[in-house]
Amino acid sequence: MIEIRGLTKSFQGHTVLNGIDLTIQQGDVVAVIGSSGAGKSTLLRSINLLEPADAGTIAMDELMVDISKRSRSETLELRKSTAMVFQQFNLFRQKTALENVMEGLVVVKKMPKDEARKIAAWQLSRVGLSDRVHHYPKQLSGGQQQRVAIARALAMEPKLLLFDEPTSALDPELAGEVLDTIRQTAVEGNTMLLVSHEMDFVRKVATRVLFLDKGIIVEDGTPQEVFAHPKSDRTKQFLANYYRDREPDFSI
């Protein structure tokens, strides 16, 4: 179970996260939606301390970190308990797909290379890239790169998977293959926190949807609740744009 309490962060006087409280149960697939600048990415990046919040606590099972008083080893422990998939994939360019997945296992988990190689090959086969293990990132399509990144994250067996707009840099066709991979990951029971603008996908895959606005969680519920019966006006306004495109041009 992951417990986030009072997460607050501001950039030069502008509040990006305003006392976020969030509890995620094991196996939850939590989607975060909201307009640009609502603090969605910052929320994700503050959980693995790429952008440490100013105040708040993050607890993951027995590990409990007070952000403002964190030690270096707590930072590393928190990062080891999570894994992130980035918008721009962020694969290691000088390493093959296989080496990308092996890297964390060998360097962080101190696993023997043979064992790491087996796990990496298996993870890559699960995202459908068995024939691309010796390719370098620049030799792969965007969709393939993102699937390698997902394999790299899954190989670490994190307690929480963080997806930061994983399909925003991809065209619809490539986004489709990545979304399929993420769906499969969700079905397998991984605990996930996902920032996405793919509303249809969020509706189908998430077990819980958060709507974030000005650093506050204004809506929290099942996809059915949030999409069909939003409580706050801000959510209704945001979703109106989403529904507008789905309505027929005219009706009788």
Binding site: N48, L50, L76, E77, R79, K80, T82, A83, M84, F86, N90, L91, F92, E103, G104, V107, V108, A149, R152, M156, L162
Partner: peptide, 8 residues
Amino acid sequence: EAAQSLGM
């Protein structure tokens, strides 16, 4: 960032 997020 990717390397840091792995816990390096």
